[in-house]
Design a protein around this nucleic acid. Structure first.
Lengths: 125, 125
DNA sequence: TCTCTGGTTAGACAGACATCAAGACAGCCG
DNA sequence: CGGCTGTCTTGATGTCTGTCTAACCAGAGA
């Protein structure tokens, strides 16, 4: 089950068009917040943040689980659990090739989240 | 107790200097992840995301609790709880002026988080 | 087919979290 | 001073999360 039927969470995160104006420009509507919050929640764990970084910064843009797991003092199932969370948040994609499973970041989604947090050059603190 | 003694969570988030290179450029070290994750976790709730947006996008860059609370179907204490979470994550500051308490976003921290998620223009999908 | 390795799923458990009701505190105004 | 309004804190409760062990599935090779 590597091609999870992406749960409602990323309905709009998939779209190429930016789903929302920057947080500080106009109020994020409730519906958008419901869509975006799960993505941030997925980033809200140190292990997942590191996993995503390892995946996104890896050579070729993808990383094998076999390379990710040994970097943590956690069991395999726990890492798998965190990867699943990243997957369901729409932040990464997984693909099995032969024996190994490779994870790949989804830059478009990351860009959307970054755009949401963007603040126009310091107005006047 | 409005000037909470910012808990370890934002040790580096306060610094003006960017604490980390973009997530996709180099691996986020464990220590940095431990500092950054709580900020994302704070954003990982629809109510807090909306609260932060309302604060950051408000006229004058600040919002009164009395304006925030009625926008949700939640009790006062619950909103207060979420605001405290945003405060402890270093995302907002609170200040009491007379009867009302005003919250203000911290653009520098938001910018750091945005920078972390930034992805260089699609290299080659 | 049997077996080994890599990865996920299932079940369990401790700790953390969201929410509310009730109480406490701070500042205004009569 | 005394009551009122606005906000925060505390305590209780049900749910969610992170982690583990054990069991299961998928390919690769013998």
């Amino acid at each position: 089950m590597l091609k999870q039927a992406s749960p409602l969470a990323l309905v709009e995160l998939d779209a190429d068009a930016p789903c929302c104006a920057p947080l500080a420009q106009r109020r994020v509507p409730a519906e958008a917040a419901a869509v975006l919050a799960p993505a941030f929640k997925a980033l809200g764990d140190p292990v997942r943040l590191r996993l995503l970084s390892m995946i996104a910064s890896a050579e070729g843009g993808e990383a094998c689980v076999c390379d990710l797991t040994p970097a943590f003092e956690l069991t395999g199932p726990t890492i798998s659990h965190h990867l699943k969370a990243l997957r369901e948040a729409g932040l990464v994609d997984a693909e099995r090739r032969g024996t190994w499973v490779y994870y790949r970041a989804r830059p478009a989604v990351l860009r959307q989240l970054a755009a949401l947090l963007t603040v126009e050059s310091t107005p006047a603190s």
